[in-house]
């Protein structure tokens, strides 16, 4: 267990060091959320005036959703590291070393979690500058970070698993093209739950993006219903654990294939 923890730490630090040397990469992942927040948010600001929407500021409504979306989209690329490492001899060398097998996947997930916290705080900050206020305060923000990190782990684990199974960048492009954007629209990220078309509302109940968005908005209200937050966070945790386990299985399958 200690070896596992040490190795996870070493691999996480390696990824963070790489990230610190390519800060532009982090900025790229923030371009889209800025577009959603500052352009989309402005363009559709009158949406909040729809009867039944239930909030005063669309920007405030949208900010937690954009945070959740950013986490999902950025985590979808997590597997790139495995594709790169397999193309080079890095993965092979790791497998012939006593490196804890589990730590390869966990290291990647922990790294993605940390990246998600940084991204989320930046989006929170930009939202604040643009005029959004977070009534839930520090506790609310922390709860949003927890839910968002869990969602990031779900998608990073999925991306890692696909990367290990296919070792193709194309598979990861598939995740981002066919999965993330539709999932964002099949949720209450941009539109109040009460106003979603019936079938979208039905799909959203099974959509982890919606779980994270609903929990995050709830946590940021002045008087959150923590039951709502905890229930969704629990679902996200269970899904993250399941996909984390799948990614570990995918690693075993990679080992068998070589």
């Amino acid at each position: 267990m200690t070896t596992f923890a040490t190795h996870t730490g070493l691999l996480t630090l390696r990824s963070l060091r790489t990230l610190s040397r390519q800060p532009a990469y982090l900025l790229f992942t923030l371009v889209q959320p800025m577009v959603w927040l500052l352009l989309f948010g402005q363009l559709f600001s009158k949406v909040a005036e729809l009867p039944g929407f239930g909030v005063d500021s669309y920007l405030e409504y949208l900010t937690p959703g954009v945070i959740v979306m950013t986490a999902m989209m950025s985590a979808g690329w997590s597997g790139t590291t495995f594709v790169d490492d397999a193309e080079r001899g890095v993965l092979d060398r790791n497998v012939t070393s006593p490196l804890s097998r589990g730590s390869l996947v966990t290291g990647s997930l922990v790294h993605q979690g940390i990246v998600t916290v940084i991204q989320s705080l930046i989006v929170f900050g930009v939202g604040l500058l643009a005029g959004a206020r977070y009534a839930g305060g520090v506790t609310g923000v922390l709860a949003v970070l927890v839910c968002t990190v869990l969602l990031a782990v779900v998608f990073a684990a999925l991306s890692d698993a696909l990367a290990l199974l296919t070792r193709q960048r194309e598979a990861l492009i598939g995740v981002s093209q066919f999965l993330t954007l539709p999932l964002a629209f099949l949720s209450s990220v941009m539109m109040a739950p009460a106003l979603l078309p019936g079938w979208v509302a039905d799909v959203a109940r099974f959509n982890p993006v919606d779980w994270a968005a609903v929990a995050s908005r709830e946590a940021l209200t002045a008087d959150p219903d923590w039951g709502v937050v905890a229930w969704r966070a629990g679902l996200l945790l269970a899904l993250a654990a399941l996909l984390g386990w799948l990614a570990t299985r995918a690693f075993r399958s990679y080992q068998r294939s070589i």
């Binding site: 060091r17 790489t18 040397r21 001899g89 092979d92 060398r93």
Partner: peptide, 12 residues
């Protein structure tokens, strides 16, 4: 084990 393919991290 030194594989045929380079196995160092180019960003380190």
């Amino acid at each position: 084990y030194v594989s045929q393919k380079p196995a160092f991290d180019p960003m380190a």
